[in-house]
Design a protein around this nucleic acid. Sequence first.
DNA 1: CTAAAAACCGCAAAAAGTTGCAATTTTTCT
DNA 2: AGAAAAATTGCAACTTTTTGCGGTTTTTAG
Lengths: 248, 248
Amino acid sequence: MLKKERQAYILRQVSLHNSVLSADLSAEIQVSEDTIRRDLNELAEEGKVIKVHGGALSKSFNSFYLRSDVFHGEQKKIIGQKAISLLKDGMFVLSGGGTTVIETARMLPETLLATFLTGSIPAAYEYAQHPNSEVIFIGDKISKKSQIAVGGEAISKIKSVKADICIMGINAMDIENGITDNDWDVVILKKAMLEASNLKVVLSISEKLNSVQRIKICGLNQIDILITELDKDDPILAPYRDSGITIL
Amino acid sequence: MLKKERQAYILRQVSLHNSVLSADLSAEIQVSEDTIRRDLNELAEEGKVIKVHGGALSKSFNSFYLRSDVFHGEQKKIIGQKAISLLKDGMFVLSGGGTTVIETARMLPETLLATFLTGSIPAAYEYAQHPNSEVIFIGDKISKKSQIAVGGEAISKIKSVKADICIMGINAMDIENGITDNDWDVVILKKAMLEASNLKVVLSISEKLNSVQRIKICGLNQIDILITELDKDDPILAPYRDSGITIL
DNA sequence: CTAAAAACCGCAAAAAGTTGCAATTTTTCT
DNA sequence: AGAAAAATTGCAACTTTTTGCGGTTTTTAG
């Protein structure tokens, strides 16, 4: 096998798998790892791959996760749009504090006249920017991790209300375990929020679906509506629809 | 799995869930926790995540408020420095929400170990950034004008505590009328704050001195300490010193 | 205050990389 | 064609990086 051929093969593998191991290539093409390394170094010098210890990465690999923030931003805007369609004038809304919820808060139509109840500092801040809606903050000790009021006072306050709708971002959710999280205080709070609301709406980018974390918040049967950035007929969502949740 | 891949995976998880546990990652990627820790440390050094005991946090999550440089920033920093000298470990601090107070909050020494009680969203946010202090938010309806919780609940909550010190920005103050403001809700709140504290400290840039607004909060005799950006012997401050206030 | 979890430290083994060199192949030039 | 030059390749010795592990210290939470 010629050098050029070999390098072409390597490039194909890289673009195919996003990453290659020197050892693998060596075995596949039956040349020494030294040769592979020299090839990878050349390709790296030509800027065709990114050389790392143990192999090489595709050039597009870098921007892949650097861009993810913006990328997620777009997804969250789609989710926000759908969520807003659920809000009507006069509603009493219990709101969580994740980035998805905050994105939604920024998109509220100016004309909406609702009351928002939240324990999240960033969410309260966003809602407070809105010209017509009213904001009630549930005070208590602030958890630094999540910028959310946690503790008995907040819980009992939430339990004393009955909201029309609860809009909540989540960290992880799957068919078996329902909605899960890894922060005890947050779990307690979210449980209380769900109990205090008539309509229970969960916002989540699809990437968070089918993942699990330590502590259970509730089963899927507790949830009324699931909003993701996907089309409501997307096959990923099918099992959730089957378990009785309305998909938006 | 290559090191870079692994770190990319970690970054993805962080941006997805806002926080990760070393133990979880270790189990997911099938490497030792030491390796995860080393990765997290590297990512933290590169400024991509925030390392904490047990895992790491997303960096972007904490940056909702873009630092809007306030008017008279330099003057307020001088005031902040002076105010900080009053704070000692273990203190229970009742804090207002003006820009001056927020500037002070940003300058708190990392070692300070105090508890802050506030009804201001921006102030709570700043205090929550501090590594060692505890933050308690006084929840209630949020006044949009001032981003502060106002209302009966907040008032009664404040009245139920006794703070060591009250740090409060003001809108107007003069010899004759004392401290005045033009927002009824804020006035009520500030009155309650002053009553609930032992040491009453007022922060104000000199521009606000010798001006009056509609509603009276309290007379000068209620105030213990006045902090401005001026030297404490400045003639502008003389009448206030004469009326019994300590000038810093 | 105490026990458990996490972080740190140093070490050693394994994996990957580097370098120099000799053997082989390819290219070039007459 | 055939010899010299150049490029390529594999190998061996050595260096560097990465990783996991045991023991100790620090931090956290009850």
